[in-house]
């Protein structure tokens, strides 16, 4: 069977039976090794479409993964909407330093969500850079590799606007105001998801870390995240959709599937075989090689063993369980690819 990497990834999203699963970084994909190899580096590549496309392609061109991906962080949308962002360094991702809106459930003082119109949102800032980079990736690599567009989930983005802790505390104090904020960001998230697909992304991977069970109880998930994800991600036209959530997702995998996404991306805190069992064929499973262990702190042999174990467990796409640390050594990623592709 001769397939291009792109065909293999897209078949895996449909959960088709394959001789082997694809291996691709669906989460943040850049490392210092890639940057040194391809000549595009952080922090410049966060805000320059050509550099972003070059570095976003490096997971395929340097390591041999079977996809390319635009965007390396979850701060582009937040910055466009008024957050103060530190661009980070060559080995560290951008960080949100200041949340623009007041949301104080203790004092009962809240700003109204006066945000950019979705159409206006897409026209400038780093979202526009990421859309341009996605187009370039599609033009240059789209026949051979699956193009992944990464964006930020609605609960997470609302948290960026008012501080995540304020928003989570708000659930207990003023749930209507919390809903008002997520309602306000979700049309922007939806427009951005569709714009990434229209720019050429085959798959939109939405990261929604703030709705992890480390932050929300499973019975809050659908109310504050899942129903919005259904609207802003699962409804995308012309692309597959993958919902990424960190932490131990075992209790919310069925709820993640309920959103109607094509696939879910989970980390190693949920056992691989258990994740496949719970997903029960309703969604493609993407993951879940540990980023800290084995990728950052383990040996190439550890990485290869983890990849094989996850393939054996039945994951549809072998991928890191969370965004790569830029400090991961080249040999560990080469070992991960080789373990799956042979």
């Amino acid at each position: 069977m001769s397939m291009t990497p792109r065909e293999r990834v897209l078949a895996a999203m449909k959960q088709e039976k394959l001789d082997r699963p694809p291996v691709a970084v669906f989460t943040q994909s850049a490392t210092v090794g890639e940057m040194e190899n391809c000549g595009a580096a952080w922090p410049e590549a966060h805000s320059d479409a050509k550099l972003m496309a070059k570095l976003g392609a490096a997971q395929a061109t340097y390591f041999g993964f079977e996809a390319v991906r635009s965007s390396f962080c979850l701060t582009a949308e937040a910055e466009r909407l008024g957050c103060n962002v530190d661009p980070g360094k060559i080995n560290s991702t951008p960080m949100i330093k200041k949340h623009p809106f007041k949301f104080d459930a203790m004092e009962d003082v809240y700003d109204e969500p006066n945000l950019l119109d979705p159409e206006e949102f897409l026209k400038g800032g780093r979202p526009a850079v990421i859309l341009e980079a996605t187009k370039l990736l599609k033009e240059q690599y789209g026949n051979e590799y699956a193009v992944i567009g990464g964006n930020t989930g609605p609960f997470t983005l609302a948290g960026h606007m008012v501080s995540t802790e304020n928003l989570v505390f708000g659930i207990m104090m003023n749930p209507e105001m919390v809903a008002k904020w997520i309602d306000a960001v979700n049309p922007i998230v939806k427009a951005y998801t569709q714009a990434l697909a229209d720019a050429g992304a085959d798959i939109i991977q939405m990261s929604e870390p703030s709705s992890s069970t480390d932050l929300l109880s499973p019975d809050m998930f659908t109310e504050y995240s899942g129903r919005y994800v259904k609207e802003s991600l699962a409804s995308v036209k012309g692309a597959d959709s993958v919902l990424h959530i960190c932490g131990d997702t075992s209790e919310i995998i069925p709820l993640m599937a309920d959103t109607g996404v094509t696939g879910i991306s989970v980390e190693e805190k949920v056992d691989s075989a258990e994740a496949v069992r719970i997903a029960a064929g309703r969604v493609a499973c993407v993951g879940n090689v540990g980023v800290v262990n084995p990728l950052l702190q383990g040996t190439p042999e550890d990485c290869a063993a983890a990849a094989k174990r996850i393939a054996e467990a039945g994951f549809n796409v072998i991928s890191p369980g969370c965004g790569l640390s830029a400090l991961i050594k080249d040999e560990n990623l080469f070992a991960l690819v080789k373990a799956i592709k042979g």
């Binding site: 203790m106 802790e165 989570v168 207990m172 109880s217 809050m220």
Partner: peptide, 12 residues
């Protein structure tokens, strides 16, 4: 039985 939101509320 409790998750972060309940703990945050108790803490405050």
């Amino acid at each position: 039985k409790y998750f972060l939101p309940q703990v945050l509320l108790a803490a405050n």
